[in-house]
Amino acid sequence: MDILLTGVYVVFFPGFFTVVIIGLLSSWVDRKVTARVQYRKGPPLLQPFYDVVKLLGKETILPKQGSRFMFILAPLIGFVSISIVAVILMLRPLVATSFVGDLIVVVYLLTLPSLALIIGGAASGNPLAAQGASREIKLILAYELPFLIAIALIVYKAGFKIDLQTLSATSELGTVSGIISFIIVLLCVQAKLGFVPFDIAEAETEIMSGPYIEYSGPLLSVFKITQSLMLFTLPVFMITVFWGGIQFHGWELLWFVIKYVVILVLIIVIKNTNPRVRIDQALKFFWGFCTVLAIIAFVLAVIGNTYGIAWL
C-alpha cells in the first residue's frame, strides 16, 4: 500500500499532474497580467492548455543536419529534471520528511533545463540555435555564481544544514542579509526562467527564439510545459528556502498561495518594465553587482552570527 500511495503522491497529488496544471495556470497568470499591463485583454483561462494540446497534435520536424537523437532527448531531459524537482518540493510538506542533501539535488536539477536547452540548440545544427545555445551557456555561468552564494548564505544561517525540511522551518526575510539574498535569487530566477530582461538566449527579434528555432510539435510543447513548470517550481523553491516553506493545512495553505502570487507578480513586473539586456551586460550584472551584493550579504550574516545581532 505504501508504494501505491507513494505512486499516487508522485503522479497525481501533489506530484506531476497537479504541478503541471498549476504550472500552466501560472503561465496563464503571467500572460494575463502582462496583457493587462499592456492595455490588452489577454488569453482565456484555458489558453495554455489549448496551446499544449495543439502542439501535441502537430507534426514533428527533425532537422537534417545535427544529431537527431540528442535533438529528441534534450527536451525530455529538461522536462524530467524539472518534474523531479517539483515532486521533491511538493512532496516534502505532505509527508513531512526530507533526506540530507536534497537541497543540493534540487539546485543541481534546476540547472538541467538550461543544459537541456543548450543540448537541444546545439543538436539542431542551426546557426541561430547555436548562437542561442552559446548565449545560454554564458548566462548559466553568469547567474549560477550569485545564486549559489545566496543559497550558501541560507545554509550558513541554518547552521550548515542542507536538507529542505530544516531550511523551510524558518523565514529568512526578517534579516537584512536574507532580504538581499532573496532579491539576488529573484533576479537569478528571472534569468533561469528566460524572462525579460534576461531572455537573451531566446531573443525573438535578434536570433528568432534561438535554441527553439528548429523545434516543432510535441517536442516544442515539452519545452513549453518545462517552462511553465519552472514558473511554478522556482517560486516554490524560493518560498521553501527563504520564506518559511509550505504547509498543507488550514490557513497555511492560503498563506502559501499569497506568497506564491507575490513572487509571481514580482517576476511579471520585472519582466514587463525592462528591455532585454545584452549577454555581456548580463555577465557584468551578475558577476559584478549581484556577486558583490551576495558577498556583502554573506559578510553581514557572518557578522550578525558572531556578534549576535539578530536583524543582520
Binding site: V33, A35, R36, V37, Q38, Y39, R40, K41, G42, V269, N272, T273
Partner: peptide, 19 residues
C-alpha cells in the same frame, strides 16, 4: 528610473484593456 513605468502599469491594470 522605472517609477513612471510602474505607475503607468498600475494605471493600466486599473483602467482595463483598451481593446
Amino acid at each position: 528610473p522605472k517609477i513612471r513605468e510602474l505607475i503607468e502599469a498600475i494605471k493600466a491594470l486599473i483602467v482595463g484593456p483598451y481593446t
